[in-house]
Amino acid sequence: MREINFSSPDFDRIDLLIIAGEASGDEHSSLIVGKIKERLPKIKLAAIGGRCLEKKGAHLVYPLVDHAVVGVFEVLKNYNLFKKIFSKTISWIKKYNPEVILLVDYPGFNLRLAKELKKQGLSSKGGGEIKILQYISPQLWAWKSKRRFEMEKILDSLGVLFPFEIECYQDTKLNAFFVGHPFADRDYNSPFLYDPNGSLLMLPGSREQAVGRILPSFLQAYQILLRKFPQIKAKILVPSKKIRNLVMNLMDDFPNLKTNVEIIEKISSLKTCGAWMSSGTMSLACAFGGIPGVIAYRAHPMTYLLGKFLVKVPYLGMANILLRESPPYPEFIQGKANGKNLSFSMERILKNDQIGFEFEAISKKLVEMLKAREQEAVDWILQETMLG
């Protein structure tokens, strides 16, 4: 097993420890860190998370985001690794005793951590001094809704991104607050711009297993599409060097596409005519950016069967769930997520000269739906703690 080294900060106290295990949580919480540091310049921040948090000024204790996986069977394959990371996290918290811990999404790890901190008497719910906040609710409305009763026993407060999630906790004593979605924040600038003359965009996700399953379908679709649109270029967005290397290996099976496809890591005002995307955070980011596209997803076969049995929502993409009366994105799952279907759906987008106006309206609708009402995430954190 690879060596797991947790680093020590160069300051003697920790005001706020942030734990984010996925790229989306790393990005969302980094926006909060930026605003907290504006209000409290001397605050001491540490993170078990990713590079976005580090860039905003948090001391990166351990790059947990690098080990993100999805699905029950993928987690089981990496059980010993996560067990060791979990143990190291507890030991680090005992040693540095942060005043507040902000758990960001990632419920399989974070809620178990909150439970253990209570058991060991470290958190305020267990008689200790550490305040435990959870930012981003687990998707109780999709599956495992009874988790809310465990959450009220181990968390001090919860900040949710979607207004309907407040209702999920009405029969508990857990203080839940709608703090707005970061993509609807007035200071948020979408990294995407719709341009009918822009490149096609491929967003295969941030987890190795998921990228390995879906990117070949995207590339097959692009290969088919080039027959009718030979001038169109494509870009593949990757979140890290590890994913970049994986994408380059997958591209070896499509040598004729290498001159047409650019792999990019950083984006700002990226002009695109449409996107093939996995069902994660980036699909919602595209909706906020007014970008038309197609959602496709391939899971481990056993994970898919289990999810089909347990999950209670009609769509995978959050924009489709929020706008279920008229879902903006076609979705293709498992075997239907093939080059032929994805190519045909994108062809329809490229031939629709009204699509830009349609998705501009969708973007405005989502911003109005998900913007903060009474308080933003930073206000909620400072209100629920003594940090301010």
Rank of each mutant, 00 (worst) to 15 (best):
L270N: 02
T272G: 02
C273N: 02
G274S: 12
A275N: 11
M277G: 04
M277R: 06
S279A: 14
S279W: 00
T281C: 06
L284R: 03
A285L: 15
C286N: 04
A287F: 15
F288N: 06
F288L: 11
G290K: 08
G290N: 15
I291K: 05
I291D: 01
I291Q: 02
I291C: 06
V294N: 08
I295Y: 01
I295W: 00
A296G: 08
A296R: 02
R298A: 00
R298Y: 04
A299H: 01
A299I: 02
H300S: 12
H300E: 11
P301N: 00
M302F: 07
M302P: 04
M302H: 06
L306H: 00
L306M: 13
K308M: 11
L310S: 07
K312M: 11
V313A: 02
V313G: 06
P314W: 08
P314H: 08
P314F: 05
Y315S: 10
Y315F: 13
L316H: 03
G317Q: 05
M318L: 15
M318A: 10
A319H: 12
N320S: 08
N320Y: 12
N320G: 06
I321W: 09
I321E: 09
L322Q: 07
L323C: 11
S326T: 14
S326F: 13
S326I: 15
P328S: 15
Y329M: 14
Y329N: 10
Y329R: 12
F332R: 07
F332E: 07
I333W: 14
Q334V: 12
G335Y: 15
G335A: 14
G335W: 15
K336H: 07
A337Y: 13
N338C: 10
K340M: 04
K340F: 13
K340Q: 09
K340G: 08
L342R: 14
S343Q: 09
F344E: 14
F344D: 14
F344C: 11
S345P: 10
M346C: 13
E347N: 09
E347C: 10
